[in-house]
Amino acid sequence: MRRFEPGETVALRYITRADSTVGMTWPARVVRDDDELVALWIPEGAEYRAWHRPPGEPRRLGPARWRRETLRLMFPGRAHSTWCSWEGPDRAFRMYYVNFEEPFRRTPIGFDTNDHALDIVVWPDFRWEWKDLDEFEALAAQGVFTEPFAAAVRAEAAAVLAELERRSGVFAGEWPRWRPPAGWSVPGLPAGWSEVPPEPWELRTWAYRPHLAPR
């Protein structure tokens, strides 16, 4: 599929583990799309789709507002992305947020992936901490994540922490100074964001036991 041009609006979709349907979805503007990096800008206030569970009802997707300016850095073939975020009128850099996830796949309207629960928060002074480690380990213990897949996610996390220790890759210091081009407006979800068929991950049957996945 074609590459996207800087400034184009795309949909970044999470494809559910349980039944491979479209789940959480964000609108984003493309900053960069090449063999080394896909960078997507999601500004504060962008309307996206998030899961809601009204009392006594099944969960469903509904509109929500993104709370913090985010530049999402995704690497072809890698099982994580790194989110740089800023807050306040002076755009103070808040943190790097490493999200472990399926390698992204291209669609006609953007990119598909899904979250692996595990995250690492890296503060501006490079202190770091796990996020949702208990949830990840519980999914592995319950068999939702297979043993080989859980081991692969842990190995990906170790590789990221090695980059952090070396201050290399996204941690080299350039991204906190990034700014969106003047005139970029808040993007909306492109037409067809929920109708375009999901692009499947070819290793899902190796990684997940869908019948055990929470819905």
Rank of each mutant, 00 (worst) to 15 (best):
residue 77 G to H: 06
residue 125 D to S: 04
residue 20 S to R: 13
residue 143 G to P: 04
residue 195 E to V: 08
residue 176 P to D: 11
residue 14 Y to E: 12
residue 47 E to R: 10
residue 201 W to K: 00
residue 95 M to I: 00
residue 149 F to H: 11
residue 182 A to I: 05
residue 70 T to Y: 07
residue 199 E to D: 07
residue 90 D to R: 03
residue 65 R to F: 13
residue 102 E to G: 05
residue 164 L to M: 09
residue 150 A to M: 04
residue 136 F to T: 04
residue 132 D to F: 14
residue 207 A to E: 03
residue 71 L to H: 10
residue 19 D to P: 03
residue 199 E to T: 11
residue 75 F to K: 03
residue 190 P to N: 09
residue 212 L to H: 05
residue 123 W to Q: 10
residue 32 R to S: 08
residue 178 W to M: 05
residue 146 T to H: 12
residue 28 A to T: 02
residue 154 R to M: 12
residue 140 A to K: 00
residue 55 P to S: 02
residue 79 A to I: 01
residue 87 E to Y: 10
residue 202 E to A: 14
residue 143 G to C: 07
residue 96 Y to D: 06
residue 43 P to M: 12
residue 177 R to A: 14
residue 130 W to T: 00
residue 47 E to S: 14
residue 84 C to N: 08
residue 192 G to V: 07
residue 82 T to N: 04
residue 134 D to M: 12
residue 85 S to L: 04
residue 141 A to P: 01
residue 28 A to W: 04
residue 200 P to S: 08
residue 155 A to H: 02
residue 67 R to L: 05
residue 161 L to V: 13
residue 126 F to H: 14
residue 134 D to W: 13
residue 9 T to K: 07
residue 144 V to C: 06
residue 93 F to D: 07
residue 74 M to G: 04
residue 46 A to T: 15
residue 8 E to Q: 15
residue 204 R to A: 15
residue 107 T to N: 01
residue 92 A to M: 01
residue 207 A to N: 03
residue 104 F to W: 11
residue 14 Y to T: 08
residue 111 F to Y: 15
residue 52 H to F: 15
residue 84 C to I: 00
residue 106 R to E: 04
residue 2 R to M: 10
residue 63 P to V: 00
residue 18 A to I: 12
residue 48 Y to S: 14
residue 81 S to Y: 02
residue 116 H to E: 10
residue 115 D to L: 12
residue 182 A to F: 05
residue 27 P to F: 06
residue 43 P to K: 10
residue 190 P to F: 09
residue 181 P to I: 12
residue 149 F to P: 01
residue 79 A to H: 14
residue 106 R to T: 04
residue 132 D to R: 14
residue 81 S to D: 08
residue 170 V to A: 15
residue 18 A to H: 14
residue 53 R to T: 13
residue 158 A to C: 03
residue 170 V to W: 06
residue 8 E to Y: 06
residue 141 A to F: 07
residue 82 T to L: 13
residue 146 T to S: 15
residue 98 V to G: 07
residue 74 M to P: 00
residue 205 T to F: 09
residue 70 T to A: 15
residue 135 E to R: 13
residue 99 N to M: 13
residue 151 A to P: 01
residue 66 W to G: 02
residue 126 F to G: 06
residue 149 F to E: 02
residue 38 V to F: 12
residue 85 S to F: 05
residue 199 E to F: 09
residue 197 P to Q: 06
residue 116 H to P: 01
residue 209 R to L: 12
residue 24 M to F: 07
residue 193 W to M: 02
residue 124 P to Y: 10
residue 29 R to D: 03
residue 13 R to A: 07
residue 211 H to G: 08
residue 200 P to W: 08
residue 206 W to V: 14
residue 87 E to H: 11
residue 76 P to Y: 07
residue 18 A to V: 10
residue 209 R to P: 02
residue 3 R to Q: 09
residue 169 G to E: 04
residue 55 P to F: 01
residue 118 L to V: 03
residue 98 V to D: 05
residue 33 D to Y: 03
residue 162 A to L: 12
residue 34 D to I: 11
residue 17 R to C: 09
residue 212 L to Q: 00
residue 23 G to A: 14
residue 124 P to V: 11
residue 50 A to N: 12
residue 12 L to A: 09
residue 189 L to T: 01
residue 65 R to K: 04
residue 97 Y to N: 04
residue 214 P to W: 13
